[in-house]
Every structure is written in C-alpha cells, then in structure tokens.
Design a protein around this nucleic acid. Structure first.
Lengths: 224, 224
DNA sequence: TCCGGAATGTGATTTATATCACATTCCTTT
DNA sequence: AAAGGAATGTGATATAAATCACATTCCGGA
C-alpha cells in the first residue's frame, strides 16, 4: 500500500496525487522485474494495464510490412504505452526490455478514476501525451528524410544525450536492432559505424561507443 | 453564444458538455473561413488557440531536414493540433487548408477549464490523443518500410476510404504535394501514377482519380 | 578449454529512387 | 484568343542503400 507513497520516482502526474490517492495507487499496483530481452507486452495482445517504467530501458517496436521497426526507446521513470492501453483494446505495438527493468503494473480503473477525480493528474497526462506526439512527429520526419549516416548520427546523439548523459556508453542494442531503429540493414549499420570510426568522429569497440568529435557528428546528423 | 449549442458537428468530447458549458464555449469561440491554400497556423509561431475543423480538409505539415513533409490530412469535424497547442508554446508544425474550410478558434483557457471540470470531456480528449498517436505510429512505419508504389497505393486508398468515401474523387493535392505526403519526388509520383493507370488499376485524368481494381491496389499497398 | 552458433565486418552486385533535362499540357491573365 | 508561367509527364543518368556472399569475431554452454 505504501509502495507509491514513498516512491522516489513518481511521475509528474502522480506528484499531484494526495496521500489517500497514493495509497490507493499503491494498493492496486504491482512492481515486476524484467531482464534484458524480456517481453513486457506484445503487439496484438489485449492491453490491460497502465505500465510505468521505474527503472531501465525499454524498446517500443512493431512489426511493419517489411521488418521490425523500433519506434522509440523509453527510459524510466516514464509511462509506457498509455496510447495503446487507452486507445485500443489490443496492443498496437510491443515493448521489450533492453536492460534489466522494473515496471509497475497499474490497475486501469484506478488510473481512470484519477483522471476523473483529479484535474491536475488528468492535465498532466494530457500534456504528457501531447509532448510524446510532438517528439514522435519530429523523429518520424527525421527518419523519413535523412539518409543513413544522418539517421545513425542522430541516434548515437540520442543515446549519448537523452539516455546516458555521456559521450561514452555501451549501446544496449545489437547491430541488427540498431538497424531496426535507424531503418538500415544490419550490414549498413556496420559499414557506417566503421566509417565514422575511420574518420575519427566516434570510437567503436564492439558495443562500446565514444563520441570523439561531437560537432562533426552533429553536422552529419543535421545535413547528411 | 448559441453557436456551439446548436452545432451539428460537435466533437465526441463536446457531446459531454452541458447547456451552460456549451454556451460558455460558444461565447469564447470564433468561426473563421479559410480558402484552399490558406495557412491556418504556421510552424514556429506561438500556439494560442485550440482549433476545431468544422468542415473541410487540412494538411498538417512540417519543414524537415530535406524538404516539406505532410504528416497527416485532417478532415472536419475534428480537432486540429491539440498536441502542439498543449505540448509546446510554439507550433511544431503548420496547418494549411487544402479545400475551403471552416475552423473554430476556441479559447485555450475555456478548453482547459472543461478538462478540469468535466471528466467525460477530459477522458474523451485523452482517448482522442491516444487514437491519433496510434494511427500516426502505424502511418509512420508504413511510410518508413514500404517502397514508393506501396506508399502511393496506400495514400490513394486513404483518400478513397477515409476522406471521400468513394473510389472516384478529385485529389486535392498537386503532384508535388502528393510527393510530400508519400515521401516521393514529384517525378516519381507522376511515373508511378501513370504506371498504375497503364496497368488498369486506377484511371487518372489529371487530378481525377478512379480506382478500377481495388484488390490489386490493396495488394500493392500491402506488399510493395 | 574447446566447440558451435550467433553476431559482426566487408567487398561485390543489384535495385529503387532521386536527380537532371527537356517536352508537353494546363491555367491564368490580359 | 494569345501569351506566359506553373504544373505535369517521361526518358536518361547518377546514387544511396539493400542484398548477396563470405570471412571473422564473439560468446555461452558442455
């Protein structure tokens, strides 16, 4: 019951909940651990709970007409897949842990009740949905228009700046998955990464990436 | 004051408003006419009102790194750009009328007030945002993975089924704009459309399109 | 520690699509 | 009706990126 009351990673929306509400949330909320590679929910399955990633990285991906597409990387703490839970009975996409992950499963009726009874909570959820849509639009246009090196540079910068907050990190994806997120074949990912390495823009040692010349990488992300 | 009370094209959300609320909405709402080609709002401008398309077709488009990208076609009656109004101070994209259009400009504070005080209204807005995001995800993956003929076939079917409800229609876009929505060069659009014509799948007379063999068009949309 | 399968790197080839170049048609304006 | 500019069609060429083919490296389990 007290799990949410004393949670240090509450969402902006949950910050508007009172003590009674937090206890209610705690009572209808289960935390589950997932290991790297575990499926959290699957496309086409019934969507049943509101999910909240407390810790870890999750890829949101769907089966497209040609291959698997990673739509986004969610980093805890953040809600996971509200649109597919509230917008359809069935999941429109899958979520898979790409690091060890702690996920809270929240009863959808309790969540809906908070939307109905707590206006700040509801508004915060709306703003959250809006911001997600905006960033998704942006990402979509970039993916559609940039060519391969630009998309790969953009994604490297995304991991450095948004996910790890460091220019040195271990990529939590295989080359194949990195292709799924940047819309490239596995081979092309390898080629472009080793080109970037040869030009001294990044240093690649397997999954370990160090950004050496960030300005050049930014310029590739923007212009090519 | 009575404009919303007796409006025949209210949104699902507004159907949950009471008479008092509808009068309030009417008092803070202005209907504006736009002609084909008129800009309704512009990327980078301050986002100030909630917009509702009563009648007409609107393209939502943004300037990408390489060219203009049409993100979606909104058909009245529907809200327009809630994410960019609530999610950012500044518009992340532009909206331009592609037919003559009637748009209601709703005071954002009145809109927020309804979210706060009318739970059905708020929930309806949330569901609306969720559904939009889902369909956008779907569209994005299709655009990313299908090749040109598939994207063009898909978009023709979209206009026939979602916009006009008829297999014969006048495309309200130039070949160039049709390229912006399908991610093709103007020349490629011409080529693929005339290929489809030669194969007897659609009949093209300038902007007038007749779908002749819908099954074949569906199969092109799905498989390539 | 060795084995075997998975993941990765890299060259050669093919293919889809953009770009270039130009002809033609369609509108608008006078 | 004529003229001029915009929109469109179509062939030739260039190019980015997928695919194919194979070598190499990595890694987990016996």
């Amino acid at each position: 019951m007290e799990i949410c009351k004393f949670c240090s990673k509450r969402s902006a929306a949950a910050e508007h909940l009172g003590n009674d509400e937090l206890e209610k949330l705690g009572g209808s909320c289960v935390e589950v651990n997932f290991k790297k590679g575990d499926i959290i929910f699957k496309q086409k399955a019934l969507s049943s709970n509101i999910l909240y990633v407390r810790e870890g990285l999750v890829k949101i991906h769907m089966t497209g007409p040609e291959r698997e597409q990673i739509l986004k990387i969610a980093k805890g703490p953040s809600y996971l897949g509200i649109p597919t839970t509230l917008g359809d009975k069935v999941n429109n996409y899958s979520a898979t842990a790409i690091t060890d992950t702690k996920v809270c499963f929240i009863d959808i009726n309790v969540f809906k009740e908070f939307i109905a009874t707590n206006k700040e909570f509801a508004y915060e959820i709306i703003v959250n949905l809006c911001k997600n849509e905006l960033s998704h639009f942006q990402r979509c246009v970039n993916q559609l228009q940039k060519q391969s090196p630009g998309r790969i540079a953009e994604t490297l910068l995304f991991f450095a700046d948004e996910i790890f907050g460091s220019d040195v990190f271990d990529l939590p994806l295989s080359r194949h998955e990195f292709g799924d997120i940047t819309g490239n074949s596995r081979e092309n990912v390898s080629r472009i990464l080793s080109d970037l390495d040869k030009e001294g823009i990044v240093k690649i040692k397997g999954k370990n990436i160090s950004i050496v010349d960030k300005n050049k990488l930014l310029s590739i992300s923007k212009n090519g």
